[in-house]
Amino acid sequence: MDLAGHQLPSGSVRLEPYQNWLLHDAFYAEPRSEPHPVAAFVLANRGIGISLKDLFALFGSDIDDGPLLAESAIELHRPLAEDADYEVRGTIESVESRRSRRIGPFDRITCRFDLFEAGDLAATVTNVFAVPRPEAGP
């Protein structure tokens, strides 16, 4: 399947106040009512309508193989809010085949997630995953 351009199923998410507190603490930040800026990443991950395990299965990979995030960009178009409902839409933007000395052949897969609050774009999270593509044996 050609993954580039693939629309991921949309979904929704809310950051409950207790989750906001725990997230600040987990991020080594003083808890406060305004969510931590990197909460956008968490909301994108939780709100998209596909689990991380199924997303990696779509990539032809396995979450249990310990895949790693290579790059991430968060753009906050407005401050995030706790107890607000976010609709999350996602797209696989590109797939590039690369090779590195450390992991050998891999696909660099870029996914974009848009978070909407009350119909307005609140944040965009763009994640790049390096998915190893082991070469077939002789």
Binding site: L23, L52, I63, G66
Partner: peptide, 14 residues
Amino acid sequence: HMKVLALLLADPNP
């Protein structure tokens, strides 16, 4: 902190 974040992220990566 990683364990709490794994729950908040719904990230099962072991």
